[in-house]
Nucleic acid binder design. Structure first.
Lengths: 332, 332
DNA sequence: GCAATCATTGCACACGATTGCAATACACTG
DNA sequence: CAGTGTATTGCAATCGTGTGCAATGATTGC
C-alpha cells in the first residue's frame, strides 16, 4: 500500500551532521552563508545516506516546480495516426535539452490540455513554463496567455508582430530552396500539394512561389495525411493528362503519399517527375527511393526552444528565432 | 519575474463561502463529512472564481503526486535516430490512458533516468509509479526495484518467472503467424533478420522457428536500424547465390531496410521474395509497397499498462499481460 | 424532559523544505 | 578595552493543503 519512499529527510541529515536543518538546506543549496568545510561535510553525509530532497515540499516553498509542460498533438483516436514522426524527434531532443537544465517534462496531449483554459494550465499543472508543439491554430489564446506574462515558447510558423516567442524553421527559405532545386534540374512545371490554413505550410508555399518561375499549380487537400495526399494526387493525375515535372509536398508524409500515387500511375521518379518533401523525418530515409526533403534541425530547434523558455522563466523577455534550413537531396 | 500565478487560494474560497478552510478542503474532496448543500455551494464558488488547487501543497500533504514517470529510449545523439516510431505511438496512447485516470506524465529519457539509481528514481522525480518502454536490457535492476515494492510496469518481452509486471504483445505467437503465412504462400526457404540479445525479437524468432518447417537461415545483425539491416542483407545477397523466398524481419524498420536491399539486388517483392515486418508502425503503411507486418495494438497496450500500474499504486500486485497479435497482410 | 446519537463544522497541527532575522563567536580598529 | 564589523549558525515563521480530534447544534429514544 504505502511504498516506503525515502524515509530519510533533511532533519536526519542535520542530526547526523550535528547541525540544524536550515544549515543543511543552505549547504545543499550551496549558499555562501555556510562554511565551506561544513558544506562539504554535509554534502558528503547526504550523498552517503542517499538523501533525496522532497520536490513537493521544495516546490511549495519556492513557488516553482522545475517542471516544464510540453503540449503536443497526439492522435486522439488510434486509427487516426496522423501524428508526425517529426514531432517525436523534436520531443526527444527537447527532453534532452530540458534535462540539461535540470528541468522535468510534463507531457500533455492537446486534448487533455484543452480541457482547462489555457491561461490556467500552468497553475493547474504546476509547471514553470510551457512548450507548445504544433499549435499554430490558436494564436488568440496564445496571445492572451502572453498577455498575462506566462513564460512559454511555441514551435511553429514565424511571423512578424506575434506577441510571444516562436521558434521555427525558416519555412519561407525552405520553399525557396525547393524552387531553386527544381530550376536547377530544369523542370518547367511544378505542383504543390498541401492543405490551406496551415500556417507553416503556407509559408513554405509562399517561399516557393516567390522563387519559382515555371508553370505552377496547386493541389489543395484537407489534411496532412499520407492517405489524403495519395488519393488527391491519384485523382488529379487521372483528370490532368500531363503529370507535372516536379512535385513539392508540404510534409514528408504527404510526399510519400504522392510517391505512392505516382507509382500507381506508372510515372517514374525522379526521371519524369521529381518530388520534394519537408521535415526530413526518419521515414524519409527509409523510403524507397529515399526522399529528397527540406531538413529542419530538431536538435538545434530543441536547444533554442528550451534556452528561450529558461530565460523567460528568469524574467528576460525573448524574441522568436529562425532556424537554418537546408535541402537534403536523396533519390526523388 | 514573478508570474502572477493563481493568487486565489483555499482560504479565499473559505472566506467567500463563509466557512472554514478545512471545510473547503473536504468539500472539494467530496468528503461525506460535509453537508451536500454546503458542498455544492463551495464547489460552485470555487468554480466561479477559477480556483485551482496547489498541486505542490497537495502532494506534500498527501505524499503522492498523481504523476507517473514514463521512461523511454530517445536517441541520444541527433544522428542516431534509432527511436522506433512505434514507441511514439505507444507513448501517445499512454498519455491518453493516463489522462483518463487523472494522472500526469513525467517524461524521462533513459539517459537522464540512469543518472540516478533506478531505485531512487521514483522518490527523486516525485512520482507515484513508472512505466518503462523498451528497457528489456536491465532485468536485474528492475527486479531489484520490484523487490522494494515500487509500483511500475514494463512494456517488453513476456517471460515466466519475472518478478514484476510486464505487458507485451505475444511475440511468440507473432512469429508463429508469420511462419504460417509463409507456408500458406508455399515458400520453401526463409531468412530471419534481427539482432541477438533483444529479448522480444528472440521470442519472435523462437515462435517462428517452432512453426516453420522449410529451409531456414538467420542473419544476425548488430542493431535494429534501417541502415544496418539494409547493409547486412545487401552483403548477404552478394555472398549467397540464391535469395530466400521469404524474409522475416525483427521490426518494421528493419523490414524496410531489407526491402531496400532487395530492390537494389533487383529481386521482386513479393513475387520472388515475400517480406514481413513487425510492429505495424505508421511507416509500414506509407511504404511502397506497403509492408506486411505483425500488428501490436498500441491503444490496448497502453490501457493495460496504465490499468495495471494504477492497481499497483493502490496496492494490488499485478501479473503481466499478453496482447493479442495479428498479421496485417499488405503488399509485401 | 434528559441523555445519547448523529451530522456537521472548526481548531490546531503536520507535511518537508526555505528564509528573514536574531544570536553567537571571533577578529580587527583606534 | 570598548566598539564595530564579519563569518557562521539557529530560531521561528512560512508555503497551501489534509486530517485527527473536539465542539457544536440537531435529532432521536425512552
Amino acid at each position: 500500500m504505502k511504498n516506503p519512499k525515502s524515509p530519510i529527510g533533511m532533519a536526519d541529515i542535520a542530526r547526523l551532521a550535528g547541525v540544524s536543518r536550515p544549515t543543511v538546506s543552505r549547504a545543499l543549496g550551496d549558499s555562501p552563508l555556510v562554511n565551506q568545510e561544513t558544506k562539504d561535510r554535509i554534502k558528503e553525509i547526504a550523498q552517503r545516506h542517499g538523501f533525496i530532497i522532497n520536490r513537493s515540499a521544495q516546490n511549495l516553498r519556492r513557488k516553482q516546480t522545475n517542471t516544464v509542460a510540453v503540449i503536443i498533438d497526439f492522435p486522439a483516436l488510434p486509427q487516426e495516426r496522423i501524428s508526425d514522426p517529426f514531432h517525436f524527434e523534436l520531443l526527444g531532443n527537447i527532453s534532452n535539452a530540458l534535462a540539461n537544465h535540470g528541468q522535468d517534462i510534463l507531457l500533455c496531449s492537446t486534448q487533455s490540455a484543452h480541457s482547462v483554459p489555457l491561461g490556467q494550465l500552468m497553475a493547474h499543472k504546476g509547471v514553470d513554463g510551457i512548450i507548445f508543439i504544433g499549435q499554430s491554430g490558436q494564436k488568440e489564446e496564445l496571445a492572451a496567455l502572453a498577455e498575462q506574462g506566462a513564460p512559454f515558447v511555441v514551435w511553429g510558423a514565424q511571423s512578424t508582430r506575434i506577441p510571444y516567442c516562436v521558434v521555427g524553421s525558416d519555412n519561407h527559405r525552405g520553399g525557396q530552396l525547393v524552387a531553386e532545386r527544381f530550376e536547377k534540374l530544369g523542370r518547367k512545371s511544378a505542383l504543390f500539394i498541401g492543405p490551406r490554413g496551415h500556417e507553416e505550410i503556407e509559408m513554405r508555399l509562399n517561399g516557393f512561389t516567390k522563387a519559382w518561375v515555371g508553370n505552377f499549380q496547386e493541389l489543395a487537400v484537407q489534411d496532412l495525411s499520407f492517405q489524403t495526399s495519395r488519393d488527391a494526387l491519384g485523382l488529379w493525375l487521372g483528370k490532368n493528362k500531363r503529370a507535372p515535372e516536379a512535385i513539392f509536398a508540404g510534409s514528408d508524409t504527404m510526399a510519400m503519399g504522392a510517391l505512392a500515387a505516382l507509382k500507381e500511375a506508372g510515372i517514374s521518379v525522379p526521371d519524369e517527375c521529381t518530388v520534394c518533401g519537408y521535415d526530413d523525418s526518419p521515414a524519409a530515409i527509409y523510403h524507397t527511393p529515399a526522399l529528397t526533403t527540406v531538413k529542419q534541425d530538431t536538435a538545434e530547434a530543441a536547444n533554442l526552444l528550451v534556452d528561450r523558455l529558461m530565460k523567460q522563466i528568469e524574467g528576460e523577455p525573448q524574441t522568436g528565432a529562425l532556424l537554418n534550413t537546408e535541402i537534403v537531396v536523396r533519390g526523388t
